[in-house]
Structures are given as C-alpha cells and as structure tokens.
Design a binder for these strands. Structure first.
Length: 871
RNA sequence: GCGGGCGUGGCGGAAUUGGUAGACGCAGCGGACUUAAAAUCCGCAGCCAAUGGCGUGGGGGUUCGAGUCCCCCCGCCCGCACCA
C-alpha cells in the first residue's frame, strides 16, 4: 500500500485551497463572523518553531470555526519597522527597507508551507506607506483631540541605541534591547496621555469586559497601572534662600492616617528643591550625583542602604506645628507621586531604617490589633518618650493613638478622616496616583513611521497638512547606517528635513523622530478587518469583525503591546473609527518551545543535528556530549531546530501536530525528534486506516437503524470522540483533543469496511478525517479524497453529535469497601440503587472483604461508584 | 518584600471538578517479520517484601470517599519591585 507522502500532498492541497480561495473572509454575509488572530511576526529573517506553534494554534481555531459555519477572518501581516533592520544595514550594508521586504518574502514562503488557513489578500507590512499614512493621520487627530502632546521631560536615553525608551522598555535600569544602563535626559518628545485613561483601562480588567483573558495577564496589567488612593498635601517650608515656589512642599501619601507620626520630610534626589540647593552647595550636588550613580539599576536594591542629606530648611506640620527636618533621600522616586514624602518611621520600614540611621524621632500612632500588643512597648528613650527602640515598623491596621482628634479611631476610618481634615484646612486633597506613566511614543531612529509634524521657530510644532501625507522616509545612502544615531538628523536628510512652515511660511524643520513600533502594532488588527484607501478603517466594515474574538500570542506581550492596543482602541473610538473599546475579547498566551542543550567536552554548544542520541547517551562524532538544561530555544546555545528541515523530513502536518500534542498550549513544550516522529507515525496510521474505506463516502449508503453490537460500539466511539474533541478544541485543550484522536484511531485498528460494516466504517473514517483536519489539514484532504468525499475536506461542515449515541447501555462501576477499590460490577446506568447495592455486595471480590463484618452503609453514586462501609 | 501560578510514573502530561489515579504520547522492555538492522506490527509496563500493601512535595484535618476542599510546612516558576 502506498504511504502518505507529505512532500507531494502538501503543496498540492495548498494550491487547491489557493485556487478555490477557501480562506478569504467576507464571502458570505449570511454567516456569523469570527475573527481569530495570532500576534503578527516581526520579519527577522526566518520563521522559527515558536511561530509554528503560535500559528498552528490559531489555525486549528480558524479551521474549526470555519467548519462550524462561521465566516472566519484569519489574516497575516508584518510588524515591519524597528531597529534590527537598521542594525542589519549597519552590519551588512544595504538599506533597512531591502532587508525588511527581503525577509518578508522569505518568511511568507515559509509560512505558506505550513498550510495555514490564512486570508492572504489582506496582508500588509507596517512599513508600507499605505499603512502608516493612516497612522500619521490618526496621530494628528489624536493631537487635535488632546490625546497626544509634545512636552519637555526627562526621558530614558539608551546611549547605545541612541534613542529614547518608554518606561516599559527599561528593565532593571537597562535598555530592553541593548542592555546598556539607561541615562536620564531632558528632551522635547511626544507622549500619548495614557494615564488619562488609566481608570478605564483598570476598570475593564474587573468589570467583565475582559472575562476572556487569563487572570495572570490582567493581574500584571493591574500591577503595571498601579493605582493607589491617597492624599496630596503641602507642608509649609521655611529656611535660608528659599524661593517663593519652594515655600510649600507638596507630598503624596497613601497613609494619611499616620500623619501625626510624621518625623521628617523627604524629597527625591532629582526633585527641583534638591536642584535648587545643589546649585549653591557642592556637598548637595555631590550627594545627588552619588545617588544617581547608584541608580535604580542595583539588583539588590532591597539591601541598598538608606542615605540622606539634610537641607537647611525646616517643614512645619500643619496639624501639630512641630518642626520637621527636610532630607534628600535616596529611596524616594521623582517619578512617583510628587517626588516628596512625609515620613512616619513607626509605620513604614524604609522611613524607620532612615530614622534609625539619622537618629530621628519614631512616634507610634497606631496601636496594633489584638495579638500584636507586644509590638508596641512605650519605653524610655531620650529622643522621644514613645520610642521603644524597635527596628521593625508596624504597617498593619489598629487603633489610632497620639493622633489628636483621631485617637481611638480604627485606621480604616482615620484614613478618610485625615484626608477630610487636611482638605478642610486647605492644605491638600484626596488624590489618585498611578504607577503608569504617559507613553513616550517617539524614537530617534530612521526605520519607523515619521512623526508628521513640522517644527517652526515662530509657530512651534505644526501638523503636516493632510494633503501632504504620508510623510515618507527620505532615501539616504547605505553608509548613513554605519554611523551611530539617527540619519534623519543629519545632512543626508536635509532635503527632506528642511522645509517651510505650513502656517507662517517661515523656515522650519521636520520632526526627525519616528514612532515607537508599538504604535504600529496598536491598531493593525483593525486594519486587517477593513482597509480603505482614504481612511484607517471603514467603521461599519471594521466593527463587523471587531473585536478580535480570539487573540493568541506570547506572554511577553502581557503588558506593553496588550495595554497599548487597549489604549489606542479607545482613542480610535473617541475619534469615531469604531464602537469598540476592548480590541481582544478572548486572549490566549501560549508557552514557548524549548529544547535540550548540548555541549562538547570543551564546553562548546552543539546544534541538535550534531548530536546522536542512543540509549540515553549523547555523542557527537563519537565524542561524549553533555546534555544540559531544557531551555527556550536561542541562537547562542544552538538549541534550535529549523521548521523548514522538519517540514522536509516529516511534513508540515507532523510539525504542527506535535507542537500541539505534547503539552497544554499555555505551557512550554519541549521539542524532541522522537516526538515529531510519533506525529509522523500517527499520520501514516490514519492514512492506512482510511485507505481501507476507499470510495466509501461516494457510495453514500445510509446507516441502518438496527446494528450488531460491534458496529454500534464503533458508532458510539465515533460520536463520543466528536463530542470530546469539539469540547477540547473550544477549550484550547489541544493536547487532550489529540489524545482522543489517538484513542479513536486505536479503536478503528481492525475495523472492517466492507459488507454490512461499510456504512458504519464510512461514518467512522469520515469522522476521523474531519476531526484530524484542523491539526493535519493536508493529510485530511488526502484522506477525504481517498474516501470519495465531496469537494474539499476544509469546506465540509463539522460533524454533529447524535446525543443518544453518547450514553451506554451498561456501565462498569467500581466497588469500594471502606474506600478501597475491591471489585467492579456491570449494571444499567439507570438501575435502581437497591439493585446496584445487591449486585455489588454479591460480587465475589467485594464479598470477600465484607464477610464477617457488619455493613454500616452502602453509598451508591449512580453511574460513578459504589462504596460499602463496614466495621 | 508584594502579587500570581505550580508540585502526579523514567519524561511530557490525563483524571468528567469530591467518586476506578496515571488516559494519550515519548522513552523502556518482550515478541513477530528480517540473514541482519531500520521501519512496521502485536504485547508488557507506578512502586514494594505481590491473593496483600504503599502511592499525587511533607505533615495534619474534613468526608463513606481527597490529586481535587481546609490548616501548617518545604520546594520550584513567573510578574512587579525603595511606588510613600
């Protein structure tokens, strides 16, 4: 018998699908719409196996939903702007554009080889001017509406990439790509005012709008937004040379209840007041630079010593009139709150550490709840009679003491009372604070979407008139990419950059910044749904598809991309482009593909294909090889496999199938050669099993109502398999769906396909083929053709379960004696309890353990289990 | 430190959510076919002192019955991290 040959079958069916335009969306308005999307790839050069897993998952959903009668949108495109293209031009010559489009060309071919059910008519790259022209238009619209603004601010400057980074792109004080320590620099750049939408972005996480998102992703976004309720209040300051603007110090606190425990005020090293004194006093300036050198990049910041510098000013407590010293303190962040705090050492650990170091007062104002009594000893201390000398701050709830009018109140009541009191006295008000910062959206790079703005000496920033859009990137020579920095800022771009102001006609320059690539990816999914020439989307058309019902991608985008896209969608809604605010109804974050690592005797990493595995030992050309940890595939450790080589050896179907078969999709999966071989074996067994029923579907014989038990059992298995595979696909349990397919294939092992058995075999083999189709679409078409099915398998409607075939006539019940399994009985599923009980007690294995004992109770759980309790 | 998640055979993982623990796959072992090997097919397979006992990181509890629920402990992973 001929074996299944993916090398010829796969291209053949891909061509047929193409010719029939099977996967183009929007063909049948009578069908319900379903939009499934995987995060689009960056055109780095070639597809890696992680892409295969990602797109295989989306493809299962796309094909499954299509078979279920949905009009499915499953598009593909390219997240094509970004720094690697410039780096490639720097290292290898050429232009970022050539590199990018060349890579797209290659990767498109590789993706097509996977046989994905994609509507390629909607493909675009974000570096296409036809795409970014609309992004520029929206930018200007957002600007007009006040969603975006240009402002002077301290930015995160990556000295290696020579560009600004968003806060989200700074990891441990280092650039997320370069790894270089980030510097702080003052610049005029553009910001999306995402903090204005912080509340709505936060609320949607909890109000059911994102019910289809994993809890941990929502939790990460919640933490990232970091909303806190508190009090902003101003402490009066007095001291030498204090300019008017510093005669009050605004601070932010989430613990206004501890206000009576204040013993000093603290400001961040880069606070304006600190700078004021730094200008006059070298000691202050030295201390500030010392703090900045320490930076936020210290890994063990937890242990970093609290340090401070006392300023020649005094604060006054508005409630108690006490004098409070003012310190520059290294643990205060300018970016959070007002960059200044009041410190209550008794009830904040950092404040306490600081107070102990500098001998400042520690005054408890909260009496801990019962059980914490020992935490508060009123001891004799010289500095403060209420200080008991402890080094651990009490941060829990309790009852207010030493707090004037608040004495006796529980802390949760003292908190709003303190805010009300301060507000009443006019010293401050209750405020909400966010950890989230506005999104600095521009980069000082060439290969990005140009900011469509002209900077005029007299008019300031002026929008490029709409009829002049898109502002295209100017052509610059390949040598420009060998120089660090932004070519748009250099003489090579003068012809483009130097222009006249559209407003006053005077001399002006273009903004040489380009947009962060996260802007490009914040709305691409909408453009997939609708791509008119004259506007970003046609609202009606886009909203017919949006929101994306199922979005699939890596957990690494849990914060950045997914938060930005949610934000951007809201801006688009306010501009009337859509009625949708949440772009992704259901989100699935898939795990990574990992692989064992191999090292030779010299510690050099080896590619998997350089290693022979036999009997648990690994060798390379006879030399011993150490098998290392199973890790995320990375070029540096060479633990990578090429999807192309796998497709050559086993076919795309086997690769896709194995990716989904071994682990739950949200977890990491280890790529193994033996695993993909298992998938290959499965494909062949399916083909050989189906081959027994050649032409059966063409015969189209009805299944008789009365069947022999053996044939009825096959029908039951088929329908149970339809039921479980359908549920497992819907629930993203692809590994379980595949286990069911293996099982079903096992039951069909010796199946007869002729005579009386033919109609049942036809149904069973058709079922096997169709249930396998979302995972192994090429094989399924080959089987479908073999069976004589009508048209293409991918067009056939999903099999429907006959419910009466899901129930059994006889069920096997385990029987326990005192909770231990002793035997089993066979009864009708609806047998009366006392009958089941009698049968159970009569069963020989059970009787043996009951003999000589008293039966106290018999528990019968219908259809499940029997438990006999004896003593 | 805070937040989230997890811990089941040699490995990846199932277990209808309180009801037969280990489905399915991988690796392993035995057999068939072959001169032989590969491939393929058939079978076995949690552990042990085996008609029984023990088993879901450890200890306790609730229950007729616990991988699943509750309490304590141990270990691992992820995110945030001097956020006032």
């Amino acid at each position: 018998m001929a074996r299944y040959n993916p090398a010829s079958a796969e291209p053949k069916w891909q061509q047929r699908w193409d010719d029939a335009r099977c996967f183009e969306a929007d063909k049948d308005p009578s069908k319900p719409k379903y939009y499934v999307l995987e995060m689009f790839p960056y055109p780095s050069g070639k597809i890696h196996i992680g892409h295969v897993r990602n797109y295989a998952m989306g493809d299962v959903i796309a094909r499954f939903k299509r078979a279920q009668g949905f009009d499915v949108l499953h598009p593909m495109g390219w997240d094509a702007f970004g720094l690697p293209a410039e780096n490639a031009a720097r290292d290898n010559g050429g232009h970022p554009r050539e590199w990018t489009y060349g890579n797209i060309e290659v990767m498109r071919g590789q993706l097509k080889r996977m046989g994905l059910a994609i509507d390629w008519t909607r493909e675009f790259a974000t570096c296409d001017p036809e795409y970014y022209v609309h992004q520029q238009k929206m930018f200007l619209e957002f600007w007009k509406k006040g969603f975006v603004e240009r402002r002077e601010s301290l930015v995160n400057w990556d000295p290696v990439e020579m560009t600004v980074l968003a806060n989200e792109q700074v990891i441990d004080g280092k650039g997320w790509r370069s790894g270089a320590p980030v510097e702080r620099k003052s610049m005029s750049t553009w910001f999306f005012k995402i903090t204005e939408r912080a509340d709505d972005l936060l609320e949607a996480l909890d109000d059911g709008r994102l019910a289809g998102w994993p809890a941990h992703v929502k939790e990460m976004q919640r933490n990232w937004i970091g909303r806190s309720e508190g009090l902003t209040m101003t402490f009066p300051l007095s001291g030498e040379d204090l300019p008017a603007e510093h005669q009050g110090l605004p601070i932010y606190t989430t613990r206004p209840d501890t206000l009576y425990g204040a013993s000093f005020l603290g400001i961040a090293p880069d606070h304006p007041l600190a700078k004021h004194y730094a200008a006059k006093d070298h000691a202050v300036a030295d201390f500030i630079s010392e703090c900045q050198a320490l930076g936020t990049s210290e890994a063990d910041i937890e242990k970093a010593e609290k340090k401070g510098f006392a300023l020649p000013v005094m604060g006054r407590h508005p409630l108690t009139d006490e004098e409070l010293p003012v310190y520059i303190a290294n643990f205060i962040l300018m970016q959070y709150g007002t960059g200044a705090i009041f410190a209550c050492p008794a009830h904040d650990q950092r404040d306490l550490d600081f107070a102990r170091k500098y001998g400042l007062a520690v005054k408890p104002v909260i009496k801990p709840k019962d059980g914490h009594e020992t935490d508060l000893k009123i001891a004799d201390q010289k500095s403060d009679p209420t200080d008991d000398g402890r080094t651990e701050a009490y941060v829990g709830p309790g009852t207010m003491i030493n707090s004037g009018p608040f004495d006796g109140l529980p802390t949760d009541e003292a908190l709003p009372a303190a805010i009300a009191k301060i507000a009443e006295l006019g010293w401050g008000e209750g405020t909400t604070n966010y950890r989230l910062r506005d999104w600095g959206l521009t980069r000082q790079r060439y290969w990005g979407c140009p900011v469509p703005v002209i900077l005029c000496e007299t008019c300031g920033a002026v929008p490029v008139p709409e009829d002049q859009l898109p502002v295209r990137l100017p052509e610059v020579g390949p040598e420009e990419f060998k120089t660090p920095g932004n070519p748009l800022d250099r003489a090579c771009a003068d012809e483009w950059r130097i222009c006249t102001c559209p407003k006053c006609g005077g001399p002006a320059q273009r903004d040489t910044d380009t947009m962060d690539t996260f802007v490009d990816s914040s709305w691409y999914f909408a453009r997939f749904a609708s791509q008119p020439d004259d506007k970003p989307v046609d609202t009606e058309q886009a909203d017919a598809w949006l929101p994306v019902q199922q979005y699939i991608g890596g957990i690494e985008h849990a914060i950045l991309h997914l938060l930005y896209a949610r934000y951007f969608m809201r801006n688009m809604k306010d501009c009337g482009y859509t009625d949708v605010d949440e772009p992704f109804t259901n989100l699935f974050t898939q795990g990574m593909v990992t692989h064992a690592t191999f090292q030779d005797e010299d510690g050099q990493w080896l590619f998997p294909e350089q290693v022979e595995l036999a009997g648990g030992k690994a060798t390379s050309n006879g030399a011993p090889v150490t098998i290392g940890a199973i890790e995320k595939m990375s070029k540096s450790k060479k633990n990578v496999v090429s999807p192309e080589k796998i497709a050559d050896a086993y076919g795309a179907d086997a690769a896709r199938f194995f990716m989904l078969s071994d682990s739950p999709p949200e977890r990491d999966v280890e790529w193994t050669e033996s695993g993909v071989e298992g998938a290959w074996r499965f494909a062949n067994r399916v083909y050989e099993t189906v081959a027994k029923g050649e032409g059966l579907l063409a015969a189209d014989t009805p299944i008789p109502d009365e069947l022999p038990d053996a044939l009825k059992a096959i029908r039951k298995e088929a329908h149970k398999t339809i039921d479980s595979v359908t549920g497992d696909i819907e629930g993203f349990r692809f590994n379980k769906a595949i286990a069911r397919l293996y099982e079903f294939l096992g039951t069909l092992k010796g199946v007869k396909a002729d005579g009386d058995a033919a109609p049942v075999a036809a149904e069973a083999l058709r079922t096997l083929t169709q249930l396998t189709a979302p995972f192994m679409p090429h094989l399924a078409e080959e089987c479908w053709e073999l069976l004589g099915g009508e048209g293409l398998c991918c067009d056939a409607p999903w099999p429907v379960v006959e419910d009466d075939l899901l129930t059994d006539d006889v069920v096997t019940l385990p029987v326990q004696v005192n909770g231990k399994r002793r035997g089993e009985i066979q009864v009708a599923p609806d047998a009366p309890q006392d009958q089941v009980q009698d049968i159970a007690l009569a069963q020989a294995d059970v009787a043996r353990f009951v003999e000589g004992k008293t039966v106290r109770k018999v528990i019968v759980v219908p259809g499940r289990i029997v438990n006999v309790v004896v003593s």
